[in-house]
Design a protein around this nucleic acid. Sequence first.
RNA 1: GGAGGAUUCGCCUAGUGGCCUAGGGCGCACGAUUGGAAAUCGUGUUGGGGGCAACCCCUCGCGGGUUCAAAUCCCGCAUCCUCCGCCA
Length: 422
Amino acid sequence: MIDLRLLRDDPDAVRASQRARGEDPGLVDVLLEADAARRSALGRFESLRAEQKSLGSQVAKAKGEEKAALLARTKELSAQVKAAEAESTAASADVDRALLALSNVVHPAAPVGGEEDFRLIEEVGEKPSFDFEPRDHVDLGKLLGAIDLDRGAKVSGSRFYFFVGVGALLANAIVRCAQDYAVREGLIPVLPPVLVRPEAMEGTGFLGQAAENVYAMPDDGLYLVGTSEVPMAAYHMDEILDAGALPLRYAAYSPCFRREAGAHGRDTRGIIRVHQFDKVEMFVFCRPEDAEAEHEKLLAHEKAFLGLLELPYRVIDVATGDLGASAARKFDCEAWVPTQGKYREVTSTSNCTDFQARRLKIRTRDESGTRPVATLNGTLAAVPRLVVAILENFQQADGSVRVPAALVPYVGREALEPVAAR
RNA sequence: GGAGGAUUCGCCUAGUGGCCUAGGGCGCACGAUUGGAAAUCGUGUUGGGGGCAACCCCUCGCGGGUUCAAAUCCCGCAUCCUCCGCCA
């Protein structure tokens, strides 16, 4: 959630941000009104309550007739206090609801517009040129006995798959390589839970616009996370972090679950868009003034890891309309997918400023008191899309695939070779 | 799944309806003392909100209820601990 003080002091800035996102600027006025109503209701309750407390202590000391008279007055007051409290509670709930509906204020440097209005920052690496007709990752996966989509659909439905044989080895190699990279860079490795309570889901902003993409377990009141950003953001929920401990930098490895509602017909072939995949996600808690520098660091890690895998990619500055509720700014790295002739998103890093921390009550304490921290997240390695990029970019005419040098020790071989069909 | 017990400030603890405006200890911070330190003494030390301010309100795991008044009584829930059963 955003800072109510910012909203009071500079509502135009928030309206402008909403407009840039293509969201409703009218929410700002709803919130301003609710805030005013809450403050006046709170004032009424507080003065009545103060009177009740002071009379209460007189009742304790009084005796006889005096006491009876006081009791009559306090009885009446009690009902008024109760009513005023209910009013003030309701007004607070209105504010909370309005506050949760409002997205983070966008960063001034983020390009304004929709999905297509991103700013290209750079292109890195060389796109492969083939003197043969390149196969797509589905054909390669079949040829190598690495990806079994037919049986994935049989067992679990569309958008599910089995990694088999060298596919399983490659997937694990990517993860282990990413973990080792993270540890070398001083990030703390984590294996988080992937079922979380509503507070964690709500706090990270995934129950708003993105709710339809979340798997819910209603019998247990839990949600399956779409990214380990969720458990990691909530990891320090309700805590006050010592200023000396910041920044806290984690790299969490977990499966991710996405319903992909509203994506019917998109990327139906292959494993670009799936319901379940493994990912190593970086997550940072830092002082708000350090957030931009940390964001640059996360982007640098993403680029370094893609470089390690020798993949050609580009970096874009995501436009305001495509940021998601929590992010003020977002950079995507997109790997080249030869058979699509396109760059496709493989990693994404978001600066959520203090938006998530405010919802999750994650603060830091220093000389100036307590205040919310900033949170940032970034993909280090999303397995299926990296498998796609590796298979397609490094394929040879005979259907074999060269393993990038950094992964060779983890995969245990220098090339993936075609196998007989099973 | 069943039976018990617990949850109060960073930590330990007092508290069984009004003198709790939550006491004490440890730790921490600042000050006094000292050549400097230890010890000692003093002061401060949950978090959130409202108000220009003085100051006020909320906060004893969470949510309800009883009462003029709840840390305290009642109901529900959560988490942790112990034991039993079942399972990996």
